[in-house]
Design a protein around this nucleic acid. Sequence first.
DNA 1: CACGATTACTACAGCGTGTAGAAATCACTC
DNA 2: GAGTGATTTCTACACGCTGTAGTAATCGTG
Lengths: 113, 113
Amino acid sequence: MATLGGLERSVMSLLWDSAESLSANDVRDRLGEDLAVTTVLTVLSRLERKEMVRRERSTRPHRYSATASREEHTVEMLNEVLGTAGDREAVLARFIGTIPDSEAAALRRLLQD
Amino acid sequence: MATLGGLERSVMSLLWDSAESLSANDVRDRLGEDLAVTTVLTVLSRLERKEMVRRERSTRPHRYSATASREEHTVEMLNEVLGTAGDREAVLARFIGTIPDSEAAALRRLLQD
DNA sequence: CACGATTACTACAGCGTGTAGAAATCACTC
DNA sequence: GAGTGATTTCTACACGCTGTAGTAATCGTG
């Protein structure tokens, strides 16, 4: 998958945190930095090309929203990383050794269906 | 962390799969492509800068090896991804829903200490 | 139709990566 | 100890991605 730049990531973060879709101006306003709208539009277009953002072209200020939730996206990333793993189970074994106890407990619970 | 390019990744793969450390010439020979040694040396230097590769400068052909095993590195990546997660437990919950049953079973076993 | 808002197109600098030549350095041999 | 071949370092450049935005095109409304 595509790796995001800093501004792209900020924009995704906004979209993930926002309940409704946002216009380019909305996004620009919510970013702390003082950017030109065209900059934001460029970034949004690139994110659309990367299929991380969906755009409503029917409304006049086009409205943008994330195609997947932050959690869904993170899971995708996790699986992508695991895909490069070689021995997936070995990785998972090590991995659970690195997470905090509380999360290990949560996992145990979740796996006990 | 650093994201690797294609050639960098190939080189890491070699180093991960090799029991002993390799010289730049070893690496060049094992890569299928027909590259100049200097190219390989450049890549190895960059990987060293990224602390993915350790170099023995004492021997004359310097010898290179991975600083972490492929599995260790993959776990690092997983944690890095999780670090961007927001709600880690929510992500883990979704995540275990996406892995094959066999791996879920393995995880269950591993968590039952 | 004119005008203001919005979007699309074009541009460019900076950085990371792939690629390698030229220059410097090292290790031996005679 | 100088010459030579192997090795390493330095320098360079093209290309693609990202941040950034101006200019041109388009749309909607009065």
